[in-house]
Design a protein around this nucleic acid. Structure first.
Length: 560
RNA sequence: UGGCCUAUGGUGUAAUUGGCAACACAGCUGGUUUUGGUCCAGUCGUUCUAGGUUCGAGUCCUAGUAGGCCAACCA
């Protein structure tokens, strides 16, 4: 079987066209260029999957390049987390690069531009320059310093580099066109003076290049053929090309910038600034809080690399703004975990169930299938006894026939065990049920092959033996925001839509086979959802995170 | 008041480049099931508007409408 012919996205169409037009496939090269000023989120995952996926498809190298031109915001912590996240997603970069590695080259090229009359030192305040910049609908005016001599510019620029001037006193600007309809072409800044220690170059420089001047030239240095970024950089393309044209030397690869629509997810926010705000205001416990749309948050919540890659693949790549339904992300993780996660029994909201005709003190270890979706997963033993926990929601004193669970006088199968019949309840003075008393049919044991064991009863419940169960902390997550588009309201901050119940911490009871499981191990708590082990887990105390619930048809029926 | 980008079911993304609008998710119906999960079958629903070119337009042209981006010494 040949693999399904997958349709190409518009970036791939462009690459195919370039190859058609004679661009040599071995010169194809990509890069993923994060700024190390925050943790990567699911939107970056889309970009990572795009760039590294392209690299795989075209057998082309993909560089990881840290776009570190602003020492005020960038930190090593972020570099480390970014590398970890990309590796975890399953991708390998060719070279690990830093824009700061090119500071000298960039400086030399800037001198070249000055010599060619393409750049000049401006000595006005930022306010004055902003004033002269004009607006999208009105043209700008030239700086009084625009026509400084090459010699003066060269001298000033060198002294800027040497630290002779205070921050803010001078900048280097490209000399382009103050009346361009594209604001970015109105003599954009190339350099500013910043007396800040850089996470890599230390105090070597007090002159730092701006994004536009840095990015395209870095692509050029690395011979990136296709420089893929998000839509908001589209107007930068003209400048990207202008800068390149001023330093380009003939046989080399001239990088091409192309733009795609960034990922948006409903019920969350997706900008590093806003995510940082959630962290700084302690709305969440950190960048890797499972409620965050960060890669580290999703990982901690129990998402798998395969699920995220599948998601990125499914949402596609195009040029129109989009808002993806989180239901799609949830579908992707369920699909993956359904195949991989071992099934176990856990009771999260327990009520005691006593089997009155089961001998006191007796216990049995029953066979339980680990994963019906994976025949190689094998089975395990689970302990059964007279006293069990079941979910409070699985019992009602009376209910209609749509309720496939336990009710007084009704029968139900205990998963992997026996058919039971509810006989009586014991309540406290407030009417709260303390115990459910039932009887079991000793001949109905699962898998025993008896006629009784083959009987069809409508409901099957999960359970744990009170005596054998392990206590565990279980963290239940709900969406962080109550609004579908929390940051789309002009008059309200996204912070006003935070879901106060996004985290519930409860104590649950899990079957004893879970003793000794490792961080990040995934499980399906049968009939409840997927859970994984949090890093806060210890030998003494298990801590689970809820990854996602199972699809819940009952919830829909119930609410009708 | 300018320039640029985008417009296909509820949400996304395709359409052999001008030739029967399809795939996934979501929704709904039913079946199987010792998970109200999975799986299976079925179903709902789509080319922003108006003109034009053409034998034929989602695709090309014109105008309109709607949404997005652009005035940081951020990236």
């Amino acid at each position: 079987m040949s693999e399904e012919t997958k349709s190409l996205n518009f970036i791939e169409h462009i690459i195919e066209e370039d190859i058609q037009n004679g661009f040599s496939p071995e010169n194809i090269r990509f890069r993923f260029p994060p700024e190390p000023n925050g943790y990567l989120h699911i939107g970056h995952a889309k970009s990572i999957c795009l760039n590294f996926g392209l690299g795989l498809n075209y057998n082309a190298p993909v560089n990881l390049r840290f776009d570190d031109t602003n020492p005020a915001k960038e930190e090593q912590e972020y570099v480390d987390s970014i590398k970890e996240d990309i590796k975890w997603l399953g991708f390998e970069w060719d070279k690990e690069c830093y824009s700061s590695d090119y500071f000298q080259q960039l400086y030399d090229w800037a001198v070249l531009l000055i010599k060619n009359g393409k750049a000049y030192v401006d000595s006005q305040s930022s306010e004055e320059m902003a004033e002269q910049k004009g607006t999208p609908t009105t043209v700008g005016t030239n700086s009084p310093y625009r026509d400084r001599s090459v010699e003066e510019n060269l001298d000033l620029f060198e002294r800027m580099k040497n630290g002779e001037f205070e921050a803010g006193t001078h900048v280097l600007r490209a000399k382009i066109d103050m009346s361009s309809p594209n604001m970015l072409m109105r003599d954009p800044l190339m350099y500013r003076i910043l007396f800040k220690e850089h996470h890599r170059t230390g105090n070597d420089w007090c002159l730092y290049p701006m994004y536009d001047w840095t990015h395209g030239e870095s692509d050029y240095v690395e011979a990136i053929s296709h420089s893929i970024c998000t839509l908001e950089f589209l107007p930068h393309r003209e400048l990207y090309e202008w800068f390149l044209d001023n330093i380009y030397e003939a046989p080399k690869v001239k990088p091409k910038q192309r733009e795609f629509a960034r990922l948006n997810l409903n019920y969350t926010v997706m900008s590093k600034r806003k995510l940082a705000q959630l962290v700084d205001n302690n709305v969440v416990s950190g960048w890797d809080d499972p409620r965050m749309p960060t890669i580290s948050g999703l990982r901690r919540k129990g998402y798998t690399p395969a699920a995220i890659r599948k998601f990125a693949d499914t949402v596609g790549v195009a040029k129109r703004d989009n808002i993806i339904d989180v239901a799609l992300l949830e579908f992707c993780i369920r699909e993956d975990l359904n195949k991989k996660a071992p099934r176990v029994m856990a009771v999260l909201n327990p009520v005691k169930l006593i089997i009155t005709n089961y001998p006191e003190g007796q216990e049995e270890w029953l066979d339980a299938e680990n994963n019906p979706e994976d025949e190689h997963a094998g089975s395990r033993k689970v302990p059964f006894s007279r006293e069990l926990y079941i979910e409070r929601e699985d019992f009602k004193e009376e209910a209609n026939r749509k309720f496939f669970r336990l009710k007084l006088g009704g029968e139900v199968r205990l998963k992997n065990a026996y058919i039971i019949k509810a006989e009586d309840v014991v309540k406290d003075e407030n009417g709260e049920i303390l115990e459910i008393h039932c009887t079991y049919d000793p001949l109905s044991k699962s898998g025993s092959g008896t006629e009784e064991s083959m009987r069809k009863v409508k409901g099957t419940l999960h359970w744990v033996s009170t005596k054998h169960a392990l206590e565990a902390e279980v963290r239940l997550y709900d969406r962080l925001f109550l609004d579908e588009a929390p940051d789309s309201h002009k008059d309200k901050s996204f912070m006003e839509f935070i879901n106060p119940d996004s985290l519930k911490v409860i104590t649950g009871y899990v079957e004893p086979s879970l003793k000794g499981v490792k961080e990040l191990d995934h499980f399906q708590f049968q009939r409840l959802g997927y859970f994984n082990i949090d890093k806060d887990s210890t030998k003494e105390k298990l801590v689970f995170n809820k990854t996602v619930g199972l699809r819940d048809t009952w919830a829909k029926v119930k609410n009708k």
